[in-house]
Design a binder for these strands. Structure first.
Lengths: 115, 115
DNA sequence: TCCTTATATGTGGATAAGCGCATATATAAT
DNA sequence: ATTATATATGCGCTTATCCACATATAAGGA
């Protein structure tokens, strides 16, 4: 039951996307960009981040080809490279909301027992 | 263009799934489990991991409700909690394979120019 | 050219993640 | 009770990540 080395390489690449998603701020950025392209300062204001932090997070996303950039004068517009990343995030959101619902049901059941 | 605090909380939870996916070994484990339930030692052998590493990775996945456990005698069977996580991973894989394809086309074009 | 705006990066410090070794715990069998 | 098997955890170490401050770069306008 071994994993082939080629498959391992794909999964290593795979990990490049996943670890980019491993930071909550970057998830928020992706959701922001899913609505419209934005400039660095817009993002840093929306998320109340120091400009340098926003820039660095965006760099990670760009290095992993999750966002694209386009210079417009002195500003740089960041946009989603591939909207399917939002689909992937929404799938996780669906899993989460089900977990939360189940947790609430358990909490409710416990409260019933205790009352 | 502010993010509501409730939304922020959801995204924090969200991050719990994503950061679990942020490790290549855990991605491999999830793919293994997508085929069938497995015991810790099976996983550690398949991935050539020390038993303690496999156990720790599985704990992370369990704490985030991505896998479920069931004791069977002295062994513990790990299974996927929600197959949609594999859908999410496959979406990322699709994004990746497109990126790789585009990269190959660029490489090919450069080789043509240079020849 | 000098100044302003927008973005990127160098740096240091704090925190977390991952690893392997050794050891502890839990179940089952003799 | 002792032993064997399967899994989990304590520990120290190394490495990676994130942050915020200050500074650098890049483009545009006066």
């Amino acid at each position: 039951m071994d994993i082939k080395s080629t498959e391992k390489e794909v999964n290593l690449l795979h990990e490049r996307i996943c670890s980019a998603l491993g930071d909550p701020t970057r998830i928020l950025i992706l959701y922001l960009l899913s609505e419209r392209g934005m400039y660095v300062n817009e993002i840093s204001e929306a998320l109340k981040l120091p400009q340098s932090s926003a820039s660095r997070h965006l760099r990670v996303l760009r290095e992993r080809n999750l966002v694209a950039t386009e210079r417009q004068g002195t500003a740089i517009l960041y946009t989603l490279q591939d909207r399917r990343i939002i689909e992937a995030l929404n799938l996780m959101r669906a899993i989460l909301s089900q977990q939360l619902q189940e947790a609430a049901e358990i909490t409710g059941a416990i409260q019933k027992i205790n009352s």
